[in-house]
Amino acid sequence: EDVKDFLRPNMLVLDRCKKILLEGVTFQNSPAWCLHPLMSEDITIRNLYVKNPWYAQNGDGLDLESCKNVVIENSVFDVGDDGICIKSGRDEEGRKRGMPTENVIVKNCTVYHAHGGFVIGSEMSGGARNIYVNDCTFIGTDIGLRFKTTRGRGGIVENIYINNITMKDIPGEAILFDMYYAAQDPILLAGEQRAPPRVEALPVGEGTPQFRDIQINNVVCNGAGKAIFVRGLPEMNVKNIVLKDMVIQAQEGLDMTEGSNITLQNVKLITENKGPVLNIHNSQNINLRGVSYAPSVPVYLNVSGEKSAGIKIEGLDKKSATGPIQYTFGATEKAVQSTSN
């Protein structure tokens, strides 16, 4: 069979365009990405239905790349890869272009099957900023809110504000920040095993990505594999994150590695497994304010790693956990300050 010398095309590409309106249209069965506005501005996307088969490789719904001044509203996505995705170029090429995706409003959208409901990355080398996501619903999406990047990308993702999100039946994480993205499907296949990434601190350079200054409020999730996952780099933590006013029912609670200046406030995690509700590893300045959990869990919080420090707990109900806090892998009681009920 002849080897093709081209890639599967995107369905609709809007390259360096201005004053765009996409309204009331159905887009489906794209060879790769379905909608790809690129280096464009003043875009309105309204009342769209975007449909790809669940198995479509790279079958993203909307990939907004290096665009500014955008409104996405009242649209439905049911696709094979990420649903609503923010991008800004890949690696050195994206950094050289230097065009962030910025000034974006996403509201009243629904995502069914997708690898992520609302996604930033992983190709975000030009940065992403000033993005507002409100009143969206994710049903059966592999991951709800998905922030992904890896070394070599570079770029700064900042000033992201997300409010009023409803999720149901999320197989993976309701909320995910991952700086070790490896271009793999977010959900393991039956019998599949993946080795964890090698952890080592590398020098900070132009290829070091950053996630910072992100606030997520008012999230309700009925069913997820894991509530919250945060995995930063040793040389560049995920930092300055606020997660507030949430109720998440999931098999597992929080896993955090290499996070800094992260606050969970008025967050209820209803977990099914018997492990710790919160796992915090090599993270600093973590504020847990009114973080509640299902009664009679064995362990509320596991703190690990010699670098863990400045973990503050307000309003811990020790009556609900048989062993509220445990320390492993070099962590000590000095890492935690607690006020209990």
Rank of each mutant, 00 (worst) to 15 (best):
N58C: 14
N58A: 14
N74A: 06
S66V: 13
L38S: 06
V76T: 13
P53L: 11
C85E: 14
T44V: 09
K51M: 08
R46F: 04
E93L: 13
V70K: 13
E93V: 11
V79R: 03
Y55F: 15
E92R: 07
D81L: 03
N69Q: 10
M39S: 11
G59I: 10
G89H: 04
E65W: 01
D91L: 05
D81P: 00
W54V: 15
E73N: 10
I86H: 08
A56E: 08
I43F: 00
D91W: 04
S75P: 02
D91M: 07
P53S: 09
W54L: 15
S40D: 08
V79M: 04
D42I: 06
D60A: 11
S40V: 07
A56L: 11
C67R: 09
I45C: 02
E92V: 06
T44E: 09
V50H: 01
N74F: 05
N58G: 13
K87L: 14
E41C: 14
N47L: 10
D42M: 08
V50Y: 02
L48R: 00
E93I: 08
Y49N: 10
E93Y: 13
P53I: 10
A56M: 10
I86S: 01
L62W: 01
I72F: 07
V70N: 07
R46A: 09
D42G: 02
Q57C: 10
V79T: 00
M39D: 08
L48H: 00
N58Y: 15
G80C: 07
K68W: 05
L62H: 01
D78N: 15
K87N: 15
Y55K: 09
L38N: 09
D63M: 04
E65P: 00
E93S: 14
S88F: 11
S75V: 15
R46Q: 12
K68E: 09
V79H: 02
L62C: 07
E73G: 12
S88A: 06
D82G: 10
A56R: 14
D91T: 08
R90F: 09
D78F: 03
I72G: 01
R46K: 13
N74D: 13
L62F: 02
K68M: 02
N69F: 07
N47M: 12
D82M: 03
E65L: 01
G80K: 03
D63S: 05
I72C: 00
K68V: 06
I45N: 01
R46V: 05
N58K: 14
D42Q: 10
A56K: 12
S88M: 02
M39H: 10
P53W: 05
S40P: 04
D81K: 03
N52H: 06
S75T: 15
N74W: 02
P37N: 11
W54E: 13
I72T: 04
K51Y: 14
S88Q: 09
C85T: 04
K87Q: 15
I72R: 01
F77Y: 06
S66C: 03
I45E: 06
L48C: 03
I43L: 10
V70I: 15
N58I: 14
N52P: 07
L48T: 02
N47R: 15
Q57V: 15
N69T: 08
K87W: 01
S75H: 04
D78W: 13
N69S: 12
S88Y: 12
N74T: 03
P37F: 03
V79G: 06
V76E: 14
E73H: 11
G89P: 04
R90E: 12
P37R: 08
V50W: 01
V50P: 01
S66M: 09
